[in-house]
């Protein structure tokens, strides 16, 4: 297996790498009847740089999975634009969009529901290659076996069915399927959340190895900030359909610039009794407001420990802006965090 590496060594391209994906002012509203809509994603802009892992965290209902699907073109946007290189994906339809999908793959949370129980593992992994008529016959078989080997499974398992595998092994199958078409971006939507702790580490390491080997770019979505921070170069925090902060993963932990990020970080249990006992929890009061009717101004103002009410926090919506060297936050008082 590969030697331990530091993240910096993985990234010859570094922070200056060009954008692979650009998301501009993307909105996704789901109608829920009676003329009301759930504002799942409500105007977000960011870019994913070539070769990086961009982490996306937030609590349930914040819109992170919806955003992942919008990037992967599995859901149409309500408005806004998504670019892959210079191609505007959100304008493409039919066959042209289908061809672009080869570049965008997704790995899902539930390794039980995301594999067809009636297909063999070989057929599951071959399906993208067959769909796009990339190869067939002996060549296809060889490619499937190679993919199985790449994700650490026995290549002769191709005739088995998903139920014969454990959760961690199934997640490897899902990864092999995502790799089949040599995509450029893989969206990992809670890809390791359903796995046991010891298996999580195996899959995280595998994803890191594959990234280096195939120069992959990841959008890594999870609610577990410790895992996200570990795997990501940059971390993006969402709250109620908006991005509240984006920063380098070390920076965001050491110097969060949004009170929500700070509260989120303080809530994560650290597996160290001394640290954990000495920690001060920033308790958020109240509940997450409804995305049908989000609060005015800053959406976090109803729970924010440093909000100035009513003005500006309940009246003026803070923009996501560069605070220091690429550290973006959407808060009127980020210097006080």
């Amino acid at each position: 297996m590969a030697q331990p590496v530091r993240r910096q060594d993985l990234r010859p391209m570094g922070a200056s790498a060009p954008a692979l994906v650009r998301v501009e002012n993307v909105v996704k509203h789901f109608p829920v009847g009676f003329g009301t809509t759930v504002k799942a994603v409500d105007g977000v802009s960011f870019e994913i740089r070539q070769g990086e892992t961009l982490g996306l965290v937030g609590e349930s209902g914040c819109g992170k999975s919806t955003l992942g699907r919008l990037v992967a073109q599995l859901l149409p946007v309500t408005s806004g634009r998504v670019f892959l290189d210079d191609v505007e994906l959100t304008r493409l339809r039919g066959e042209k969009l289908r061809q672009q999908r080869r570049e965008l793959q997704i790995i899902f949370q539930d390794p039980f529901a995301s594999l067809d129980p009636r297909m063999t593992v070989g057929d599951i992994i071959a399906e993208p290659l067959v769909n796009f008529r990339v190869m067939r016959g002996k060549k296809l078989n060889a490619r499937v076996q190679e993919l199985l080997r790449v994700v650490g499974l026995n290549p002769y398992f191709n005739n088995r069915y998903p139920h014969e595998f454990s959760g961690g092994q199934r997640q490897r199958i899902g990864i092999a399927r995502a790799l089949a078409l040599n995509p450029r971006l893989i969206v990992c939507d809670e890809a390791i959340s359903a796995l046991d702790v010891s298996i999580q580490a195996q899959i995280v390491n595998l994803l890191e190895d594959l990234q280096r080997e195939f120069r992959l770019t990841y959008l890594f979505i999870a609610h577990d900030l410790s895992v996200v921070r570990h795997i990501s170069d940059r971390v993006m925090v969402m709250y109620l359909g908006k991005i509240v902060e984006i920063a380098d993963s070390l920076e965001i932990y050491n110097r969060p610039k949004h009170p929500y990020t700070k509260a989120l970080l303080s809530a994560i249990p650290v597996p160290d009794p001394r640290v954990q006992r000495g920690k001060r929890l920033i308790e958020l009061t109240g509940e997450i407001p409804s995305p049908i009717n989000p609060p005015s101004g800053c959406r976090f103002h109803t729970r924010c420990p440093i909000a100035r009410l009513p003005t500006p926090c309940a009246e003026v919506e803070p923009q996501l802006e560069d605070k220091v060297r690429g550290h973006m936050a959407a808060c009127h008082f980020s210097q006080e965090v």
Binding site: R6, S198, N205, R229, V275
Partner: peptide, 23 residues
Amino acid sequence: LLRSIPRVDAVRHERLRSIEGMA
């Protein structure tokens, strides 16, 4: 087990020491 968990307060990126195999 303790060495295979990523810590949010880690100061730098280190490869996780995963336990091979399964239960």
